[in-house]
Each structure stands twice: as C-alpha cells, then as structure tokens.
Design a binder for these strands. Structure first.
Lengths: 118, 118
DNA sequence: ATTTATACATCCAAATCTTATGTATTATTT
DNA sequence: AAATAATACATAAGATTTGGATGTATAAAT
C-alpha cells in the first residue's frame, strides 16, 4: 500500500464507521479494520491509532453506544449506532457522500450512471 | 455550505490542484478557488488559508512552477505543472483517484458504469 | 464615499493522522 | 517447548493539514 493513499484517509474515517454500522448493527474495532482491508482488497487500511480515537469520540458525542463482551478470553467492545441517533447518522453519511460526489465532479468528470444493486 | 463537508476536504486539496492544472495549463490561486466553487455549484470551497500553503508546498517540492504577472494593476501568480513533472503529477492523481474509488467501494456499494464524455 | 470583488499572503488553534509503543490472551509455527 | 503471529484493546508523541481570522493592496461597483 502506498503512503499517500493513507494520508488521504483524513476525514473519512467517520464516514466509514457510520456506513459499516448502518448496515451491520454492531461491530468491534478490530473487526472494522479487517472489514475495510477486505472490502478494498488490502488497498485501504484504517490504522488502530486513528480508529480507536475516532470511535471514542463518536461514543462521547452519543452517536454510538457500546457493549463490552469477552469472547474466547479476549475483551471485545461492540459499537452500534444509538437508537435515537439513526437519523443523525444517516444525515452525516449523506453529507459526506455528497461531498465525495462533488469531489468526483472535479477529479473524474465523467457521466456516471448508478444502478442500485437490486 | 455545511461545516462538515469543509472538514472533509482534508487531503484532497492537492488532488484538486493537480487535476485542474493538468487540464488548464496554468492557473492562479484565486482562480482555483473560484473554479472549484463554480464546478460544484458552491457546495465545495477551498479556503485561501488552505490553498496558498498547499500551492507553496507543491512549488517547494518542484512539482509546480510559477510566473508572476501584473494584470489590471493587480499581481497574479500563475502556477503550472513543471515540464519534467507531468508524469509525476499524473501518478499522484491516479493514486488519489484510486483511493477515492476504494472509499466509494465502502460508502456507496453500487454498480457504477462510467461512460467517458466523448 | 463606501462597499464589494479581485488577488496575494500569513498566523494560530483545532483536528486528524501515522508511527510507535504498550498490555494481554489465544493460535500457530518452529 | 518456545517463539512468533493473530486477535483486541488503548494511548502518546510528533507531523501535517485545515479553517478562520487577519492583513495588504488595487479596481470596480454602488
């Protein structure tokens, strides 16, 4: 993986967290790291030094709630979107996606036809 | 413009600069600001406090060269991609675009069919 | 005459990221 | 059996980046 791609991740970690949690109910930190690696075939990596502070911040803001469990002798901290924050999370995501679309407008000025998967 | 979209710009200013200069030969700072506003219908803004340091840095790295001219009594500093750095700039851009595509893979997992504009 | 637009630039504070480091348990390899 | 890798959390230091404020200066518009 190249370094610059990593650098670029700035600002988008929250988007990734919210997106994944909006479709998976609950996940733990390590799981999020792995999922991102897997989904991007290893081309994108969220470092733990960036992820955990981001998770803690979202928790502190009340967007995420946590449940800690012990699985196979190891502690796991599951994060999920707080019940009363679903709408909030959706709004944040929409905002971020809009931003990325605007950016694409500049970087890749093609006609993009999106066909929803079912 | 909402605040969060601004925040997200982190890391992508260089991409915007390189992209615009790769297709316009030369531009000056203020022009870049206006162009971005225009292309995104006012939804994305590059602030001068972010743009000028970024331009200076790219110049310092030898990626960009400048010519200063006085137009209508006002100084203008034109930036262009250095002749021997065209390839470099293309590589940087490709890297950034790849990153964004990976991010889209997570954020908007749709089938995207791109049809180049002619 | 005053405000807005053009055009440059810098500084500071806040936010974010990378890298490194640390703890601890379980699984795998040697 | 011992060492390494994987799992899973977390924090701290330092670097980079950005937003917002501020500043200079000229031309155009009100």
């Amino acid at each position: 993986m190249n370094k610059n791609a990593q650098q670029l991740l700035k600002g988008s970690i929250n988007a990734v967290i919210l997106k994944l949690l909006s479709q998976t109910e609950r996940m733990y930190g390590y799981e999020i790291c792995q999922k991102v690696k897997e989904m991007t075939h290893g081309e994108l990596r969220i470092t733990e030094g960036a992820l955990y502070p981001a998770l803690h911040k979202l928790e502190g803001e009340g967007i995420l709630t946590t449940q800690t469990e012990v699985v196979d002798g190891r502690a796991r901290k599951y994060y999920s979107i707080a019940n009363d924050q679903q709408g909030n999370a959706v709004d944040r995501l929409a905002m971020i996606q809009n931003f990325l679309n605007q950016l694409q407008l500049i970087l890749e000025p093609k006609d993009l036809i999106s066909i929803p998967v079912k």
